[in-house]
């Protein structure tokens, strides 16, 4: 009898303790990130899909279509093409397609590149209902980026490549 009463009072007290803890949490600030309204700061070494790097001097792509990345890719998702322009020493890239549906972000292409012509982007808003949106034309993306930098107002474009290239990169968005 005594034991039972003890058990009941102890059990009841443990319930009260639980309720005290939850009401304590009730008045503490919210911990979740309100995603569309605020985003977390992206780490410096975030691995998005790859992108071409521009030569800061010329504003053109560093890539000269040596195709080492294409060969290094285990999933066969990179297709590079280039032409040799008159008077130029090296070829220059004319198209660089990344089939992101197959890419596993292994990074072999970035490792294989001898001139640092490709790097990881910070793109993560990649959701789409259209499979074609994931075949990304990185060369066009680069050119559009260059254009939007010279003209501050970015022209909206309906190309699939532009669908994943938001005007403001996530790194610029306010961090929590």
């Amino acid at each position: 009898m005594i034991k039972a009463i003890k058990e009941i009072t102890f059990g009841f007290w443990s319930l009260v303790t639980g309720m005290r803890i939850t009401i304590g949490q009730f008045f503490k600030p919210v911990v979740t990130v309100q995603y569309p309204h605020e985003t977390l700061k992206i780490p410096a070494r975030f691995r998005g899909h790859i992108e071409l790097v521009r030569d800061p001097g010329t504003g053109k792509a560093i890539c000269y279509a040596c195709k080492l990345c294409e060969r290094a890719c285990p999933s066969d998702c990179i297709t590079v093409d280039g032409v040799k322009l008159d008077g130029a020493k090296k070829k220059s890239v004319t198209s660089y397609h990344l089939d992101f549906t197959k890419c596993s972000l292994c990074g072999s292409c970035v490792e294989a590149c001898r001139d640092g012509a490709i790097r990881y982007s910070r793109e993560y808003n990649l959701a789409s209902t259209n499979k074609d949106d994931f075949v990304i034309d990185l060369f066009r993306r680069l050119e559009e980026e260059a254009k939007s930098e010279s003209h501050p107002a970015p022209a909206p474009s309906s190309t699939p490549a532009a669908a994943v290239t938001s005007p403001s990169t996530p790194a610029d968005s306010p961090a929590k």
Binding site: F26, K28, P29, V30, V31, T32, Q34
Partner: peptide, 13 residues
């Protein structure tokens, strides 16, 4: 709203 607050999230907003 209460469920949200007890779990440290804002609830419907």
């Amino acid at each position: 709203k209460g469920a949200g607050r007890f779990q440290r999230r804002p609830g419907p907003n």
